[in-house]
Design a protein around this nucleic acid. Sequence first.
DNA 1: CCTACCGATCGGTAGG
DNA 2: CCTACCGATCGGTAGG
Lengths: 205, 205
Amino acid sequence: MARSQAKDHDDKRKTILTAAAEVFASRGIVGASMNEVAQACGISKANIYHYYTSKNDLVFDILDNYLGTLRDRICALDLTHPTVEPLHLLTKEFLLLYEGMDNEHKIQTEGLALLSAQQQSVLKGYQREMVAVMDEAVRNSAPATFEQCSTKCRQVSMSVFGMLNWFYLWQPNATKAQRIDYAATIAELTLHGVKGVSIQHEQTG
Amino acid sequence: MARSQAKDHDDKRKTILTAAAEVFASRGIVGASMNEVAQACGISKANIYHYYTSKNDLVFDILDNYLGTLRDRICALDLTHPTVEPLHLLTKEFLLLYEGMDNEHKIQTEGLALLSAQQQSVLKGYQREMVAVMDEAVRNSAPATFEQCSTKCRQVSMSVFGMLNWFYLWQPNATKAQRIDYAATIAELTLHGVKGVSIQHEQTG
DNA sequence: CCTACCGATCGGTAGG
DNA sequence: CCTACCGATCGGTAGG
């Protein structure tokens, strides 16, 4: 039953991943001990080191799974649908993907800083791809406005990420309905708002 | 020269405050040792404990000074000026107050979690007062829209905070000009955006 | 304002 | 010769 053992192995890694994210989120990554993580998993600390070579490798695996999944799902979206507004689709998808992921979301910043340059570049690559998708959706929402000033386009897409990523702080453990509702607010705020954004006359002098 | 000694004492506390914020921001509060903080200040670790009784007291003093100053300045604003749009004034003031405060801003979340309930309530009080000012500015920007649905008003003011507080992540060490420019983008995006926000029919059914 | 230390606990690994 | 685990403890260093 080699297959079954391998499956157990993967299942256990996933269990550690989720439990560790919760411990890290509540006590901080540096502040939490591997013993606390082990206790939350119901296993010994030594057992964790059978699955992960170090605390940092565990942190990387949490963020790699989280951001990698986000990236995959966001990049798989079809934003060319004739009737569905791309920005609406995007904000809704993000907030629904964030559901149940408050812990992973929360430890992003502290975690990234702890990792090696190589590990950081992998995770930042995921983030960059998602920013690119957002950037294009924002640009397409008002092409005439943004072709004159890419600075404004970046400001708007970063504004959307600000709204999305601030959400868990004032609405932790939000329901699906709350997420869908707020996603609509962000999209409407942005789509109507871009009409009022004044463009810098970069070539004026 | 008792006065002069007291002045030196306060000056030194301020020096420690700034240096500690930088060390905490770059290595994390839990991850940074008091020896590292002392080295950054050019004094001994024991000397720091002459000014602060504990690491947490130092953390509290950093955040108390930072958020207290923000609160004072935001609450002192006159938002009834006949020609200046309140939301424009508010976003500009926030981003200018954030200038040079990236470190303090960054350690807010980790710091708050480390403090006692009593200390937390002081800092959260500052935050609550600032949220109230923002809430009123947003509400007044479209009274007819928001009197039907306070949920939407909260969503919009939290969106503004999301945009403001996300700024340092994609524009660290931004200049005054960049801050003023982005403050205008946030205000315009929001003021024009609220016209497009659809209201839930809470009483329908 | 410093050197010299402490109780405790850290991340990680030994033997079996 | 392997993987999957555990009780006990390693060398170093943290806050104070």
